[in-house]
Design a protein around this nucleic acid. Structure first.
Lengths: 356, 356
DNA sequence: ATTAGCACTCGCTGGAATAGAGTGCTAACG
DNA sequence: CGTTAGCACTCTATTCCAGCGAGTGCTAAT
């Protein structure tokens, strides 16, 4: 499992320091309170005294793994601390059969991709108790199966694309009003034969290429067909993002700060920030974790994002994950995200709808 | 403009009491603080002393229009107070040209109804500074223009409906795998000729009727066509609701109570409560206002909903509005909702997409 | 290297005092 | 008789202070 940060972080920590760091972070994740030296010995019965722990903790603070909110509180992990924890210490739990079953059960769809992804988001949220986030495939990457034209009022044509997986995308274009219905039918046939099985991206290239080739096109219809489909493919619809269960943040004590909360929800509503982040994550394989303001996204400060990308038979097409506070039970959330991504990939690779 | 509550509320209030009630509610809406007798005289230079005002206020409290949070605070309006205010006192502001222009500008769409409605929600939110809410037309009420069938893997067929307004709705159905492509084409032609111009609801009836008629159907294809379309229309997809700008609630002082906030956001996520409420509002014409727990919806306690329904050429098809705290500048919000509903109706009646 | 001991820091809690806003009542006024 | 000035009273919010408890860092002893 490859995590985001490039730096390997093989900081020289003694075995003991690492144990203590892990213990502290575990405790903090569970309780949410700064953890002190006494707590560490009590809960992880190490054969050491609080004083010793204190020395180690001071060292860890010096190295930037821990911080103290104030003198007389315990320590809390810094982002660097979390990073190290995730990269070197974390042991990932397996999902129970029951959890798998719950994911399987909740992620199904009656043929509508959007609905499937939304349900997936809800599943992620329900299982993790944080917010689920799913980015829909970019139009560009969907694989073309069929195209249909529907004439609305004169000159306006509704173009309907059906993807291999049954996803439907439609677009309104303006065109030459002189096109007859039978023209359209011929165009439809031509395009369906020529382009079936290509991704939208490939289609674009192909169309550009063909138009180049047959520049002095003898066949008016072919030219028109290419023009039409070209127009229809013009803009790449921005990735759509579903966020489900955002209200779970209201349960988190660290977000009792209203201002902070506001910024967060604004970011959720606006989505562009998240799209950018998810896009970045789509490049890599496996589960990735973005921690807090690591990516100088001040709006979602204090939040971590656990993501994984999902794929269809042609490659990676989207990203999903869970967004919650830095203080998140990663050992639980990571396998949920991982499994869900695989699940969705499986669904989209076969025929998309779950067999019943 | 007809408001929700049936009771006409011609409570015997003297001219003076009404003025004072209005002044208090106006003040409270503006400031959010309980308003005291001194404030009333100061801000609405009545030629009366605070003591007199106090007497009137005590009366208004007795009658249930006002309440005092505690002895030494001013008065705040009760729900009954708001109701009376809305029914008898409120003077509705007109929209400025600029506001109209902003609504016009923000509500446009590139042929995708869903997108249009979502933008409308955003517009409502932006203009009102509260949350915008839009309920999409029930599938049942859309007017059919065209149907297309796309074969996916054997036996599974994607049915695409295009509505008169260019809205696309699709559905996956299972069917007899022996249907050939040309069968499908014939079926398509038959259905498009027979059913064009009907609403989905009417289609259902027509199909049931035809199937009755031609019970011992000589024409297998016709029967199949009817079966297929029947299956495709089977369930009435529940109303979809868009809520935009929910984070505006975080700005409201009355929602500093986290528990309250949580309930509210949960209700927004779940949506069913709101759908019910919007459904109810769709029956009536004009702007309607639901106040607080008047409709014993404890989840959205303290919230008011200002709605209006929108229509296409066949009748009322959906509802939109603004949801905010009871303490809302109704005189500003009502015309926004009203105008927006008319706007959308105009768009959906003509050809749906804004001419450019 | 580890640990016990200890002084010190700092936030949190609870109670007392205070200030301020607003009411309700009473008695006076036109 | 309606209106108003005056006043005592109530209740909240704020501030201040003391005491508690948790936890630290340092030092000296083991």
């Amino acid at each position: 499992m490859a995590f985001f940060d490039g730096t390997p972080m093989t900081e020289e920590l003694t075995e003991r320091s690492r144990h203590i760091l892990e213990a502290i972070i575990d405790d903090y994740i569970e309780s949410g309170d700064p953890v002190g030296s006494r707590t560490v010995v009590r809960r992880h019965n190490l054969s050491l005294s609080p004083a010793t722990i204190r020395n180690v903790m001071a060292d860890l603070e010096e190295l930037g793994f821990l911080a103290s909110p104030h003198t007389s509180a315990g320590r809390i992990p810094t982002e660097k601390g979390y990073r190290y924890y995730l990269d070197c210490l974390l042991q990932i739990r397996d999902l129970t059969r029951n959890e798998k079953r719950r994911i399987d059960a909740q992620c199904h769809s009656d043929g509508d991709l959007e609905h499937l992804l939304q349900e997936t988001g809800k599943a992620l949220s329900t299982l993790s108790n944080y917010a689920g986030i799913v980015m829909a495939p970019r139009f560009n990457t969907t694989v073309f199966r069929q195209i249909e034209f529907v004439r609305l009022s004169s000159g306006r044509i509704l173009v309907i694309f059906v993807s291999q997986s049954g996803q439907v995308q439609n677009k309104l274009i303006e065109s030459d009003p002189s096109l007859t219905q039978s023209d359209l039918e011929q165009i439809t046939n031509y395009l369906n034969q020529t382009l079936s099985g290509l991704s939208i991206g490939e289609m674009r290239q192909r169309i550009a290429h063909e138009m180049q080739q047959e520049k002095a096109l003898y066949d008016t219809l072919t030219r028109r067909a290419l023009e039409l489909s070209g127009a229809a493919l013009e803009d790449d619809s921005a990735g759509k993002v579903f966020i489900e269960g955002a209200s779970s943040f209201l349960d988190q004590p660290e977000f009792s700060d209203v201002e902070h909360m506001k910024r967060l929800f604004r970011a959720f509503e606006q989505k562009s920030t998240l799209i950018e982040l998810l896009d970045r994550s789509q490049q890599a394989a496996g589960v990735q974790i973005f921690i807090g303001s690591q990516n100088n996204l001040s709006q979602i400060e204090g939040c971590s994002l656990v993501t994984a990308s999902y794929r269809n038979q042609h490659g990676t097409i989207g990203t999903l994950g869970v967004i919650g506070p830095n203080r998140m039970p990663y050992s639980k959330v990571i396998p949920i995200v991982d499994y869900t991504a695989r699940m969705i990939s499986r669904l989209l690779e076969t025929g998309h709808s779950k067999e019943t």
